[in-house]
Amino acid sequence: MTFLHLKDIEFSFPGKKLFEELDLSVWKGQITVIMGPSGCGKSSLLSMIGGRLVPSAGSIEFDGELVKPADKKKLYCQRRKMGMLFQSSALLTDLSVFENVAFPVREHTDLPEDIIRLIVLIKLEMVGLRGAANLMPSELSGGMARRVALARAIALDPDLVMYDEPFTGLDPISMGVIVKLIRELNDALNLTSIVVTHDIVEGCSIADYIYIVGNRNLIGHGTVEQLTDSNDPLVKQFMAGLPDGPVAYHYPASPFENELSRS
């Protein structure tokens, strides 16, 4: 069942067109991995799903309803069904780990203190950091901070969790922990997950379905097997991580001889 559908998306930053007629679907209960080279606009895609950026054309359908940033009230309702893990973890630096996870619960519910405490401790236990509840964000390592942020993202039991580059800048152990957590949480909490990454190995290890983004559109999509068996040169280059190929090693430039003779 399609849970999220992006249709004919067109988006550009000043001076750079990122997407043209992009079509992308996410199925309920699956982990969908969006891969692509750095700077191709993968993170912008997540921002559009969250309604923080507005595509210049096309529509986004989330759980049967359009995401319309102009309708603030409805958008905020929809965001409560989404959780997002940011690359920089984005913990509120003046609050403790416990308060960070409690933050969305406090903001959106009037639950009594003991129930909030219970919810927070359950979420922290899920990511294995119940013992760190009283630490401040500045006392956490990068991997721990990301796990706390993950606990915060699932604090309100969302339907969709989006991960923006969850594997970047982590040591192998923390990376393994995050990979395990994404899979486990997705299955245990009956979530739908979108993971944006450029790490092919980790991406492939958890993906139910993969989209490769580039050249303002999709380069390819399919399950891990379909993509590794693909004959498309672009897909091949990306999956194998080759330095040169259809995506050129050199940034576009005039021939080097010309440049040398000019000086």
Binding site: M84, A90, T93, E107
Partner: peptide
């Protein structure tokens, strides 16, 4: 700094204005 560390974006995504 809150903006640079995506805290403001995180607030928005937590449906907090």
């Amino acid at each position: 700094l809150m903006k640079a560390t995506e805290q403001i974006a995180a607030l928005e995504m937590m449906a907090v204005n």
